[in-house]
Amino acid sequence: MISAIGEVLLGKEHQVRLALACLLARGHLLIEDLPGMGKTTLAEALARSFGLGFKRVSFTSDLLPADLTGLNVFDPAAASFHFQPGPLFSQVLLADEINRASPRTQSALLEAMAAGRVSVDGTSHPLPRPFLVIATQNGLDQGGTSALPESQLDRFLMRLSLGYPPRQAERALLQGEGLRPDGITHAFGPDDLLQLQERCDRQHCSGALLDYVLDLLERSRRQPFQGHPLSPRAGLALVAAARAWSLLEGRDHVIPDDVQAVLAAVCEHRMDGGQRGDTDRELSQRLQEGVDGLR
């Protein structure tokens, strides 16, 4: 399946894997990159490969929460209100340019992400399962954007950056060898995804591995360390992502290499507070080097 998506997203196998791991770990994905790097393509390919329902919302500064969640509309025939679901009620939601929306709207989206349900006028409506939000954010300094606060960045399991494709891949792209996302025939269904997500939870984490994770967390909280300290939620996210990664590696247990593979994606945006450094994994690299990986 990775190769299938990889054919769509040429030369980005690692990012595809991470995105897939994020999906398996029931996490949400934040893709931060310049326009035209294939963010939307990745989201669409992911959704299609599992046969998931896919919707896309382009966030603008005048987008209201109700535009996302849906609202109760009056049905004159029945003389009553009935709920008209918004685009949130899909299995994969691509939230484009999330930083353009007002904080109020962002917050509504993030609460739906965390709780898995939407409350409208006192009634709560469960969201479909699986539910994955892929948000994109434009990294360029632009007017009229409100950057996500740190507390909300924390809700994204991973932040990815696609980056430019390698020359070879770009050449293939230009030659038109890439696949269109709608060309993916899905081999898995949504039920398969749910099963895989459950299998992820059963991936074995030994005491030695948890010690490694704990050492990483402690290292981030100890001076001298430039970044923000990692929260317990970050620890949970790290373990969940490492579990998904180990499943993708075909193992039934997690090893430190799995943790290191997802460390930058899971932890970098929690540590840099949304301010990107010169290189996108500088802090997590430093964190990883500060903890003995030989366990």
């Binding site: 290499d257 990883q288 080097e289 990986g293 030989l294 366990r295």
Partner: peptide, 9 residues
């Protein structure tokens, strides 16, 4: 081993 390197690495 380098700093932070795992056994596999």
């Amino acid at each position: 081993p380098q700093a932070g390197e795992t056994l596999a690495g």
